[in-house]
Design a protein around this nucleic acid. Structure first.
Lengths: 267, 267
DNA sequence: ACCGCCGGTTCATATTATGAACCAGAGGAA
DNA sequence: TTCCTCTGGTTCATAATATGAACCGGCGGT
């Protein structure tokens, strides 16, 4: 209770604690015990227990089969799926993702930005089976690693990219990850010019992708799409073709949202 | 503040209010204004605003593009997808769902029980395009309508079925819905005997399905699977074949969970 | 039989959430 | 234009609310 919260806005602390609690499950493994949770959040067991009880009766938290520890509950899932179903950019994107998959056999992703991360909101698999993607639907990825994330990054201004680099420090996923700001800025400009990102092994070794950003009628960055697959299927000429494909799809999507620009320098 | 909550367990009321608020979005449309929310929840605007602000800074609520009204946020989606990814029954079920789809061309569902409703946690589409299913992934359905829901119902005891009927009143979705307790009990017993449910137009006209329950090693009901499609593809002989297929898949799943019984009367 | 740890519970305390009343601004009507 | 009525947002004194130290009873290992 000896907090010195600057209180930037009105806020409800017990709700914040409950949200911290819910987010503990993804952080610390699917099932956690009461004492662990309390310790982790810096709460007394009583407080943690009350929060857990409330969340449990509401279905946002379940008891594990051993009935000792807790895990995330079904209601959380229901809310999340409702969000996905309502997301209009997803509705617009789905046919394009399917089309790209059918044409190429690769895997198509749709991502939106959340702060410094890209969140994958949809994935459509093509004919080629690949299961080593680090990006799950509903999962995060920093904006400078991967095709769809970097497509989002390229939709930001240079200043925003610089600020992003300062905040995150551009950690590397693989030796191919762009970890220097100057190279990243250059890449971002190149991306804006040709209309698509090329990502070769920069998030997972052996996985490559191409991606492109989607804008709305105000020119604001809305989402990004990508085509991912095994690196050995991404040789030079095909990369150009795939890039043109995603860039074209992204541009048609942007038009559908009323965007009048091109998002590229040529064309 | 003049509540007479019997307080069955420890509970945090501001958290309850926040959860009510989140659940308001699925109930009352994707985007809602502050005043509407406050009125709907019986809160003062100040309280609703504080809850919304907290949820918004945490990403569980977003502002609509018009920046006046609120909608569900990306974090809710992330949590939900984490739940789905961790759900072990889904991991086990997926190959079976895919197999059934590939063999039949129909659409396969996986449902789990949540109180009086079945919640769809996975859907795998076959070769036949059908988009009129009332059951979305993450969506509800009362237990007495539809193949997968009724498969869950058949996993309950007769007394539980009776209690369910009393609670819900067995509302009808279509003229084919079983709305009489005696018929429902008979159907449930029949289901247990033959090992699968047959659902003909009882939730949506023109849509039929077969389903079967999945049990764990303690014999507790874990989930149910179903195959759904256009009714004109569900003539008598094929229904029997499809029923045997889902019942077999469900039984193999149950075995995988350590269930030693058969769940049926024959075999 | 012991000990330590677990989840769960109690209760006096004061921190915390509360809503009536209040702004400022947007949009419609006249 | 002016007026009016909505909206979302803010303030502040009040008391209702959440809080954690200390406490159980039970389980598992030693």
């Amino acid at each position: 209770m000896e907090e010195q919260t600057p209180q930037p806005n009105a806020s409800v602390q017990s709700l914040n604690r409950a949200l911290d609690l819910l987010e503990t499950f993804p952080r610390l493994g699917p099932e956690i015990g009461l004492s662990r949770i309390a310790a982790e959040l810096g709460l007394s067991k009583a407080t943690a227990y009350r929060l857990l009880s409330t969340l449990e009766t509401r279905g946002y938290v379940e008891r594990a089969p051993d009935s000792r520890s807790y895990r995330l509950g079904l209601r959380a899932f229901e809310l999340g799926m409702y969000y996905q179903g309502q997301l209009q950019v997803r509705q617009v994107a789905l046919p394009y993702l399917r089309e790209m998959c059918a044409q190429t056999g690769e895997v198509a992703f749709l991502c939106v930005r959340e702060g410094d991360a890209a969140v994958c909101v949809e994935r459509v698999d093509g004919s080629v089976q690949v299961n080593v993607f680090s990006l799950r639907v509903g999962g995060h990825q920093l904006l400078h690693c991967g095709a769809a994330p970097r497509a989002l990054l390229s939709g930001l201004s240079d200043d925003e990219v610089r600020a992003y680099a300062l905040r995150t420090g551009l950690p590397a996923c693989t030796p191919q990850t762009l970890t220097r700001l100057d190279l990243l800025l250059e890449d971002v400009r190149c991306t804006r010019q040709q209309g698509f990102v090329v990502s070769l092994d920069d998030v997972t070794a052996g996985i490559s992708a191409v991606g492109a950003p989607v804008f709305d009628h105000t020119g604001a960055l809305l989402a990004s799409i990508s085509l991912s697959g095994l690196t050995n299927r991404f040789e030079n000429e095909r990369v150009a073709a795939l890039g043109a494909l995603v860039a074209g799809a992204a541009q048609r999507m942007s038009r559908q949202f009323g965007y009048r620009g091109t998002g590229t320098a040529n064309q």
